[in-house]
Design a protein around this nucleic acid. Structure first.
Lengths: 110, 110
DNA sequence: TCTTTGTATCGTAATATTGCAATAAATAAA
DNA sequence: TTTATTTATTGCAATATTACGATACAAAGA
C-alpha cells in the first residue's frame, strides 16, 4: 500500500492528475508566474526572488521541466528558463475541458 | 525540513496550489467525473465503480469536501454527493485566470 | 430491541514529497 | 591552467500521501 493505483484509471485521468501535481506547490506556481512576468525567460535568480535554497529551486524546476511546462536553454554558465508555449496551450485546454465538462446551474442542491 | 514553506508565498499562490493538490490524484478526478456524469449526485457506489477500498474512497471524498469541490447531503443511511456549483465556478475561473495570464505566441523560443 | 446497511475514522505500513547542505559538473574569465 | 560562477545531483531528515483492514457510528427496518 501507499502507492497510487494508476492502473485503475484512464490515461486521461492519470495525465490530468500528473499535471495538477506539477502545479500543486506554491513554489512551482511562483516560478511559473515569475517566468510569465519576466517574459525574457530569466534564469535562476529565482533563488533570490523566492526564498528557497538553490538546490530546492533546481528540484522544482526539474519537476516543471519533466511535465514539459517549462524549457531551458543554456546561455553561458546560466540557463534561460521559459514557459513552453505549445505545451502551455495543451495543458490549458486539458484543464478547460475538465472544468467545462460540468456546467453549473448555480443552485447548490444535491 | 520536509514541510512546505507556505509563508514564502502569496495567499493566491497557496490557494491555487491547494486546489491543484485536490485534483492531483486520478481517483479524485474519477470521482469528480463520475459525479458529473450521474448528474443525480449518486453516492458511494463509487466504491464499486472505482476499484479502491471503501475507506480509501471515503478519504478521497473528504479531501474533495475540504476544498469545497463537492458537497454531501444525508439521505437515510446513504449520502448523496455532488459537485458544489458555486465553488466549481470559483475554481474554474481561478484556473482560467492562471492559464490566461500567459498568452503563448507559439514560437517555442526562450 | 437487534440486525442490517452505508459511511467515517483509526491505526498502520508503504511510498512520495519537501527542503537543504554538501558536492559535482560545466562554462567563462583571469 | 586556475579560479569564479552557475546549475545539477546526491544523500539525508522531516513530513505528507496513499491505501486498507478493523472498527465505530448512525439511521432504517425487522
Amino acid at each position: 500500500m501507499g502507492v497510487t493505483q494508476s492502473h485503475l484509471f484512464t490515461e486521461d485521468q492519470n495525465q490530468l492528475a500528473l499535471i495538477a501535481k506539477a502545479i500543486a506547490h506554491p513554489a512551482r506556481i511562483a516560478i511559473i508566474q515569475h517566468l510569465i512576468k519576466t517574459k525574457s525567460c530569466i534564469n535562476g535568480d529565482l533563488v533570490s526572488e523566492i526564498g528557497l535554497a538553490q538546490a530546492t529551486i533546481s528540484q522544482h524546476l526539474r519537476e516543471l521541466k519533466e511535465v514539459g511546462i517549462i524549457q531551458g536553454t543554456i546561455e553561458g554558465t546560466k540557463i534561460n528558463y521559459c514557459i513552453h508555449p505549445e505545451k502551455w496551450n495543451e495543458l490549458k485546454s486539458l484543464f478547460q475541458n475538465f472544468f467545462e465538462s460540468y456546467s453549473a446551474c448555480c443552485d447548490s442542491s444535491c
